[in-house]
């Protein structure tokens, strides 16, 4: 891809490429904006920028990830996502074939999720001013009436659920980026969670919080929620689902899976009496087969997230300001 004299030609090429893959009525119309009607209720909007290395990894690529990330942010309010917008920043010289793969990945993810990309933009920056490709996606959706989900609604006594195994995405990305060989290939869990959310909401309509534990992992998400809701949390190490391969990779690398990123999991906090129904609904969904109740919300002026370890201790699972750094003197 070039810039300058050939700019017009390549811009056209790119436009066609997008249209070919992401084709839908609104996008094809070619207006500066997409116009659509919406049902009554509260509208939700979320945006996310995606930078990742490598661009292609076991279980996905940056295109699919950009769709999933934003759809999930929308879905964590309990909303049904309706439309997506995508902005691309490409570095001059980025292989067109790679771009095509990424856009195809994005299209496949959007189609599978049933949410079209209805508007977008592309800019090319000089070589050295970007890192291959950056993608920003924006999503909008509608919250059905009666659904009240927010980060400050966790209450003492609530149950804490997680929709499946944790750490898959982060370990998959790291091993593919750093060329680490493990016995089995670890695949990212990148997936759109809105149908899972809809199913769980059907079974447990009084859900208090939903959040996807992406960067910073489960530990960071729980701390955010504890602080927002001004409560404490107690989780049990033995109850947290971790895939065997992820566990052994983490054991070799000395990483704590609690802090490793996920892209297809959610944390759900609901009143204890609805926990069993929420769990059953998750497990009935293809993305929630390994869902589990991992602990409960408690009263705690310090807002600690603490974990009962397999040795019976109560470990504080704190926020990390930076990387996982050794702290034992």
């Amino acid at each position: 891809m070039s810039h300058g004299s050939g700019g017009r030609a390549s811009a056209q090429l790119i436009e066609e490429l997008f249209l070919r893959h992401l084709d839908n009525d609104l996008l094809r119309r070619g207006d500066d904006s997409a116009q659509f009607g919406v049902p009554a209720g509260r509208m939700v909007m979320s945006t996310d920028c995606h930078v990742i290395s490598p661009l292609f990894f076991p279980g996905g690529d940056i295109g699919a990830l950009a769709v999933h990330g934003t759809l999930n942010d929308v879905a964590m309010s309990g909303a049904t996502p309706l439309y997506l917008a995508a902005g691309f920043i490409l570095e001059e010289g980025f292989p067109l074939a790679d771009l095509e793969r990424i856009v195809a990945g994005m299209a496949a993810a959007a189609t599978a999720a049933g949410v079209p990309v209805v508007t977008g933009d592309t800019k090319v920056v000089e070589k050295g001013k970007g890192d291959g490709v950056f993608i920003t996606t924006t999503g909008i959706g509608m919250v059905p009436p009666g659904v009240e989900i927010a980060g400050d609604r966790a209450r003492p006594g609530d149950a804490i659920l997680v929709s499946g195994t944790i750490g898959d995405h982060g370990v998959a990305i790291m091993s593919s980026r750093e060329n680490l060989e493990f016995d089995t290939t670890i695949t990212s869990d990148s997936a759109a969670l809105h149908t899972l959310v809809a199913q769980v909401l059907g079974a447990a309509p009084d859900i208090h919080c939903l959040r996807d534990p992406t960067r910073g992992g489960l530990a960071t998400t729980l701390n955010e929620l504890a602080r927002q809701s001004r409560v404490g949390m107690r989780i049990r190490e033995s109850g947290i689902p971790v895939r065997g391969a992820v566990k052994s990779a983490c054991e070799l690398l000395g990483l704590d899976p609690l802090y490793v990123a996920n892209e297809g999991k959610l944390v759900c906090i609901c009143p204890a009496p609805q926990a069993a129904a929420a769990l059953a609904a998750m497990r009935a969904h293809p993305l929630g087969g390994e869902a589990a109740v991992i602990g409960e919300v408690v009263e705690d002026p310090h807002h600690f997230v603490q974990m009962e370890t397999t040795f019976g201790g109560q470990r504080i699972v704190d926020w990390l300001a930076g990387e996982q750094l050794p702290r034992i003197c």
Partner: peptide, 23 residues
């Protein structure tokens, strides 16, 4: 031990910060 993987881990500094620890 899986030395090839560990060599990578050390070379790339994956959760393996250089340390001058006496301990």
């Amino acid at each position: 031990k899986p030395l090839d993987t560990l060599r990578q881990v050390a070379a790339k500094g994956i959760n393996s910060p250089p340390s001058s620890s006496a301990g």
